[in-house]
Amino acid sequence: MDILITGLLLGGTYALIAMGLNLQYGMARIMNLANGEMLVAGGFAAFWFWTAGQLSPFLTVFLVFPVAFALNWLVYQVFLRPLVKRAKSRGQLEVDAILTTFGLSFVSVGLMLAFFGGDYFSYSYLSVPVHLFGSTWGANRVAAFGAAVVICGALWLWLSYSRAGMTIRAIAVAPDSARLVGIDVRKMAALAFALGGAVTASGGALISTFLTLDASTGVMFTLKALVIVIMGGVGEVRGTIVAALLLGLLETFVATVIDPGLTLAAAYLLFVVILLFRPQGLFGKRPT
Protein backbone atom coordinates (compact mmCIF):
# COMPACT_ATOMS: atom_id res chain seq x y z
CA MET A 1 0.00 0.00 0.00
CA ASP A 2 2.82 2.37 0.87
CA ILE A 3 4.55 1.47 -2.37
CA LEU A 4 1.34 2.05 -4.28
CA ILE A 5 0.83 5.58 -3.00
CA THR A 6 4.49 6.64 -3.12
CA GLY A 7 4.62 5.29 -6.65
CA LEU A 8 1.51 7.16 -7.73
CA LEU A 9 2.79 10.39 -6.16
CA LEU A 10 6.08 10.04 -8.04
CA GLY A 11 4.31 9.02 -11.23
CA GLY A 12 2.17 12.14 -11.14
CA THR A 13 5.23 14.35 -11.37
CA TYR A 14 6.73 12.12 -14.04
CA ALA A 15 3.55 12.55 -16.04
CA LEU A 16 4.12 16.29 -16.14
CA ILE A 17 7.70 15.94 -17.35
CA ALA A 18 6.81 13.35 -19.97
CA MET A 19 3.91 15.51 -21.12
CA GLY A 20 6.43 18.24 -21.87
CA LEU A 21 8.55 15.87 -23.93
CA ASN A 22 5.48 14.49 -25.68
CA LEU A 23 4.50 17.99 -26.78
CA GLN A 24 7.98 18.45 -28.20
CA TYR A 25 8.39 15.05 -29.81
CA GLY A 26 4.85 14.02 -30.57
CA MET A 27 3.54 17.38 -31.70
CA ALA A 28 6.50 19.51 -32.77
CA ARG A 29 8.37 16.45 -34.14
CA ILE A 30 11.63 17.37 -32.46
CA MET A 31 13.28 14.62 -30.46
CA ASN A 32 14.61 16.92 -27.75
CA LEU A 33 17.37 15.24 -25.81
CA ALA A 34 18.01 18.47 -23.89
CA ASN A 35 14.62 18.09 -22.22
CA GLY A 36 16.08 16.88 -18.93
CA GLU A 37 18.34 19.91 -18.70
CA MET A 38 15.29 22.15 -18.93
CA LEU A 39 13.90 20.23 -15.96
CA VAL A 40 17.09 20.70 -13.95
CA ALA A 41 17.10 24.39 -14.85
CA GLY A 42 13.54 24.67 -13.50
CA GLY A 43 14.70 22.92 -10.35
CA PHE A 44 17.64 25.30 -10.04
CA ALA A 45 15.33 28.28 -10.35
CA ALA A 46 13.08 26.94 -7.59
CA PHE A 47 16.11 26.23 -5.39
CA TRP A 48 17.57 29.66 -5.99
CA PHE A 49 14.38 31.57 -5.30
CA TRP A 50 13.73 29.54 -2.17
CA THR A 51 17.20 29.94 -0.66
CA ALA A 52 17.61 33.57 -1.73
CA GLY A 53 14.13 34.94 -1.17
CA GLN A 54 12.10 32.24 0.59
CA LEU A 55 9.79 32.24 -2.40
CA SER A 56 7.67 29.09 -2.43
CA PRO A 57 8.49 26.72 -5.33
CA PHE A 58 4.80 26.62 -6.14
CA LEU A 59 4.91 30.35 -6.81
CA THR A 60 8.17 30.05 -8.71
CA VAL A 61 6.32 27.84 -11.19
CA PHE A 62 4.38 30.89 -12.34
CA LEU A 63 7.71 32.56 -13.11
CA VAL A 64 9.47 29.49 -14.53
CA PHE A 65 6.64 28.71 -16.94
CA PRO A 66 6.73 31.93 -19.03
CA VAL A 67 10.53 32.20 -18.92
CA ALA A 68 10.98 28.60 -20.06
CA PHE A 69 8.33 29.14 -22.72
CA ALA A 70 10.22 32.11 -24.15
CA LEU A 71 13.56 30.32 -23.91
CA ASN A 72 12.33 27.21 -25.71
CA TRP A 73 10.63 29.28 -28.37
CA LEU A 74 13.95 30.99 -29.01
CA VAL A 75 15.80 27.67 -29.10
CA TYR A 76 13.32 26.40 -31.66
CA GLN A 77 13.60 29.47 -33.83
CA VAL A 78 17.39 29.77 -33.69
CA PHE A 79 18.59 26.17 -33.66
CA LEU A 80 15.84 23.88 -34.86
CA ARG A 81 14.05 25.89 -37.52
CA PRO A 82 17.06 25.77 -39.91
CA LEU A 83 17.16 21.99 -39.47
CA VAL A 84 13.46 21.63 -40.21
CA LYS A 85 13.99 23.69 -43.35
CA ARG A 86 17.03 21.79 -44.56
CA ALA A 87 15.74 18.29 -43.77
CA LYS A 88 14.63 16.32 -46.78
CA SER A 89 12.88 13.60 -44.82
CA ARG A 90 11.63 12.95 -41.34
CA GLY A 91 14.54 10.60 -40.72
CA GLN A 92 17.06 13.25 -41.64
CA LEU A 93 15.37 15.72 -39.32
CA GLU A 94 15.46 13.20 -36.50
CA VAL A 95 19.18 12.56 -36.86
CA ASP A 96 19.96 16.28 -37.03
CA ALA A 97 17.63 17.11 -34.15
CA ILE A 98 19.17 14.41 -31.98
CA LEU A 99 22.70 15.66 -32.59
CA THR A 100 21.74 19.29 -32.10
CA THR A 101 19.79 18.75 -28.92
CA PHE A 102 22.67 16.64 -27.66
CA GLY A 103 24.94 19.58 -28.25
CA LEU A 104 22.44 21.86 -26.52
CA SER A 105 22.17 19.50 -23.59
CA PHE A 106 25.95 19.47 -23.14
CA VAL A 107 26.07 23.24 -23.44
CA SER A 108 23.39 23.68 -20.80
CA VAL A 109 25.02 21.15 -18.45
CA GLY A 110 28.27 23.05 -18.93
CA LEU A 111 26.62 26.40 -18.23
CA MET A 112 24.87 25.10 -15.13
CA LEU A 113 28.12 23.59 -13.88
CA ALA A 114 29.81 26.95 -14.41
CA PHE A 115 27.12 28.89 -12.57
CA PHE A 116 26.11 26.54 -9.81
CA GLY A 117 28.99 24.08 -9.50
CA GLY A 118 28.80 20.32 -9.58
CA ASP A 119 27.29 19.82 -6.13
CA TYR A 120 24.00 18.19 -5.42
CA PHE A 121 21.46 20.73 -4.36
CA SER A 122 18.43 20.25 -2.26
CA TYR A 123 16.40 22.34 0.12
CA SER A 124 13.73 21.48 2.55
CA TYR A 125 10.38 22.91 1.74
CA LEU A 126 7.11 21.73 3.27
CA SER A 127 8.83 18.66 4.68
CA VAL A 128 6.13 18.20 7.26
CA PRO A 129 4.25 14.97 7.63
CA VAL A 130 0.76 14.54 6.24
CA HIS A 131 -1.50 11.67 7.24
CA LEU A 132 -3.26 9.95 4.39
CA PHE A 133 -4.72 6.45 4.14
CA GLY A 134 -3.32 5.45 7.49
CA SER A 135 0.28 6.32 6.66
CA THR A 136 2.51 9.38 6.78
CA TRP A 137 3.71 11.23 3.69
CA GLY A 138 5.87 14.27 3.08
CA ALA A 139 3.63 17.24 2.40
CA ASN A 140 5.95 18.35 -0.42
CA ARG A 141 5.34 15.13 -2.36
CA VAL A 142 1.59 15.41 -1.97
CA ALA A 143 1.58 19.09 -2.91
CA ALA A 144 3.79 18.49 -5.95
CA PHE A 145 1.48 15.71 -7.04
CA GLY A 146 -1.53 18.01 -6.65
CA ALA A 147 0.12 20.74 -8.69
CA ALA A 148 1.10 18.22 -11.37
CA VAL A 149 -2.47 16.99 -11.57
CA VAL A 150 -3.74 20.55 -11.96
CA ILE A 151 -1.24 21.39 -14.73
CA CYS A 152 -1.74 18.09 -16.54
CA GLY A 153 -5.50 18.47 -16.33
CA ALA A 154 -5.41 22.02 -17.65
CA LEU A 155 -3.16 20.93 -20.49
CA TRP A 156 -5.42 18.03 -21.37
CA LEU A 157 -8.52 20.23 -21.37
CA TRP A 158 -6.74 22.81 -23.48
CA LEU A 159 -5.53 20.23 -26.01
CA SER A 160 -8.91 18.53 -26.25
CA TYR A 161 -11.32 21.45 -26.29
CA SER A 162 -9.65 24.67 -27.38
CA ARG A 163 -9.13 25.62 -30.98
CA ALA A 164 -5.38 26.07 -30.54
CA GLY A 165 -5.19 22.66 -28.88
CA MET A 166 -7.02 21.10 -31.78
CA THR A 167 -4.60 22.69 -34.24
CA ILE A 168 -1.66 21.28 -32.34
CA ARG A 169 -3.22 17.84 -32.40
CA ALA A 170 -3.79 18.28 -36.11
CA ILE A 171 -0.12 18.97 -36.84
CA ALA A 172 0.78 15.96 -34.73
CA VAL A 173 -1.41 13.64 -36.77
CA ALA A 174 -0.84 14.99 -40.26
CA PRO A 175 1.57 17.91 -40.68
CA ASP A 176 1.17 17.95 -44.45
CA SER A 177 -2.61 17.90 -44.51
CA ALA A 178 -2.73 20.48 -41.69
CA ARG A 179 -1.23 23.01 -44.07
CA LEU A 180 -3.98 22.37 -46.58
CA VAL A 181 -6.66 23.45 -44.12
CA GLY A 182 -4.89 26.69 -43.36
CA ILE A 183 -2.85 25.85 -40.28
CA ASP A 184 0.48 27.62 -39.96
CA VAL A 185 2.45 24.46 -39.16
CA ARG A 186 5.73 26.23 -38.43
CA LYS A 187 4.16 28.61 -35.96
CA MET A 188 2.19 25.89 -34.21
CA ALA A 189 5.21 23.58 -34.04
CA ALA A 190 7.23 26.36 -32.41
CA LEU A 191 4.37 26.93 -29.99
CA ALA A 192 4.12 23.24 -29.11
CA PHE A 193 7.87 23.02 -28.60
CA ALA A 194 7.92 26.09 -26.37
CA LEU A 195 4.94 24.86 -24.39
CA GLY A 196 6.58 21.47 -23.92
CA GLY A 197 9.73 23.09 -22.55
CA ALA A 198 7.67 25.25 -20.20
CA VAL A 199 5.75 22.24 -18.88
CA THR A 200 8.96 20.28 -18.29
CA ALA A 201 10.62 23.19 -16.50
CA SER A 202 7.58 23.56 -14.24
CA GLY A 203 7.82 19.84 -13.54
CA GLY A 204 11.45 20.41 -12.58
CA ALA A 205 10.52 23.15 -10.13
CA LEU A 206 7.96 20.82 -8.55
CA ILE A 207 10.20 17.76 -8.45
CA SER A 208 13.02 19.72 -6.80
CA THR A 209 10.88 20.06 -3.67
CA PHE A 210 11.41 16.40 -2.85
CA LEU A 211 14.24 15.05 -5.05
CA THR A 212 17.91 15.96 -4.97
CA LEU A 213 19.19 17.21 -8.30
CA ASP A 214 22.56 18.19 -9.69
CA ALA A 215 23.68 19.76 -12.93
CA SER A 216 24.24 16.45 -14.71
CA THR A 217 21.13 14.50 -13.67
CA GLY A 218 19.16 15.87 -16.61
CA VAL A 219 19.90 12.98 -18.91
CA MET A 220 18.35 10.51 -16.46
CA PHE A 221 15.09 12.40 -16.57
CA THR A 222 15.27 12.68 -20.34
CA LEU A 223 15.63 8.93 -20.52
CA LYS A 224 12.72 8.31 -18.16
CA ALA A 225 10.53 10.78 -20.00
CA LEU A 226 11.39 9.09 -23.31
CA VAL A 227 10.50 5.70 -21.93
CA ILE A 228 7.18 7.08 -20.69
CA VAL A 229 6.36 8.79 -23.98
CA ILE A 230 7.13 5.69 -26.01
CA MET A 231 5.31 3.44 -23.58
CA GLY A 232 2.21 5.63 -23.67
CA GLY A 233 2.33 6.15 -27.41
CA VAL A 234 3.90 9.13 -29.14
CA GLY A 235 1.47 12.04 -29.23
CA GLU A 236 -0.99 10.38 -26.83
CA VAL A 237 -1.94 12.40 -23.74
CA ARG A 238 -3.86 9.69 -21.89
CA GLY A 239 -1.21 7.11 -22.64
CA THR A 240 1.51 9.37 -21.27
CA ILE A 241 -0.31 9.78 -17.96
CA VAL A 242 -0.99 6.06 -17.55
CA ALA A 243 2.58 5.17 -18.50
CA ALA A 244 4.01 7.75 -16.09
CA LEU A 245 2.00 6.33 -13.21
CA LEU A 246 3.12 2.82 -14.14
CA LEU A 247 6.76 3.86 -14.21
CA GLY A 248 6.41 5.65 -10.87
CA LEU A 249 4.95 2.47 -9.36
CA LEU A 250 7.60 0.20 -10.85
CA GLU A 251 10.46 2.44 -9.74
CA THR A 252 9.16 2.71 -6.22
CA PHE A 253 8.64 -1.02 -6.09
CA VAL A 254 12.17 -1.79 -7.30
CA ALA A 255 13.71 0.84 -5.02
CA THR A 256 11.99 -0.49 -1.89
CA VAL A 257 12.10 -4.22 -2.58
CA ILE A 258 15.39 -4.72 -4.44
CA ASP A 259 17.83 -1.79 -4.49
CA PRO A 260 17.43 2.00 -4.92
CA GLY A 261 20.34 1.98 -7.37
CA LEU A 262 18.35 0.00 -9.90
CA THR A 263 15.54 2.43 -10.71
CA LEU A 264 16.83 3.31 -14.16
CA ALA A 265 17.54 -0.32 -14.91
CA ALA A 266 13.90 -1.07 -14.07
CA ALA A 267 12.65 1.68 -16.37
CA TYR A 268 14.91 0.27 -19.03
CA LEU A 269 13.57 -3.25 -18.71
CA LEU A 270 10.05 -1.90 -19.05
CA PHE A 271 11.21 -0.14 -22.21
CA VAL A 272 12.54 -3.40 -23.65
CA VAL A 273 9.28 -5.17 -22.95
CA ILE A 274 7.32 -2.39 -24.65
CA LEU A 275 9.64 -2.39 -27.67
CA LEU A 276 9.35 -6.13 -28.06
CA PHE A 277 5.62 -6.51 -27.61
CA ARG A 278 3.94 -3.19 -28.28
CA PRO A 279 6.30 -0.78 -30.05
CA GLN A 280 3.49 1.63 -30.90
CA GLY A 281 2.81 2.20 -27.19
CA LEU A 282 -0.02 1.20 -24.90
CA PHE A 283 -2.50 3.62 -26.43
CA GLY A 284 -0.82 4.19 -29.76
CA LYS A 285 -2.36 3.12 -33.01
CA ARG A 286 -0.61 0.61 -35.18
CA PRO A 287 0.92 2.38 -38.18
CA THR A 288 -0.93 1.45 -41.32
Binding site: L99, T100, S105, F106, V109, L111, L113
Partner: peptide, 20 residues
Protein backbone atom coordinates in the same frame (compact mmCIF):
# COMPACT_ATOMS: atom_id res chain seq x y z
CA UNK B 1 39.31 21.35 -17.19
CA UNK B 2 35.97 22.61 -15.89
CA UNK B 3 34.43 23.57 -19.19
CA UNK B 4 34.88 20.29 -21.07
CA UNK B 5 31.16 19.48 -21.14
CA UNK B 6 30.28 22.93 -22.42
CA UNK B 7 32.93 22.77 -25.15
CA UNK B 8 31.89 19.27 -26.20
CA UNK B 9 28.39 20.63 -26.69
CA UNK B 10 29.66 23.53 -28.75
CA UNK B 11 31.66 21.10 -30.89
CA UNK B 12 28.48 19.05 -31.52
CA UNK B 13 26.60 22.17 -32.63
CA UNK B 14 29.41 23.40 -34.88
CA UNK B 15 29.61 20.06 -36.67
CA UNK B 16 25.86 19.76 -37.25
CA UNK B 17 25.54 23.28 -38.64
CA UNK B 18 28.80 23.85 -40.46
CA UNK B 19 30.29 20.46 -41.24
CA UNK B 20 27.36 18.13 -41.85
Amino acid sequence: PNQTTLLLGVAFLLIVYFLP
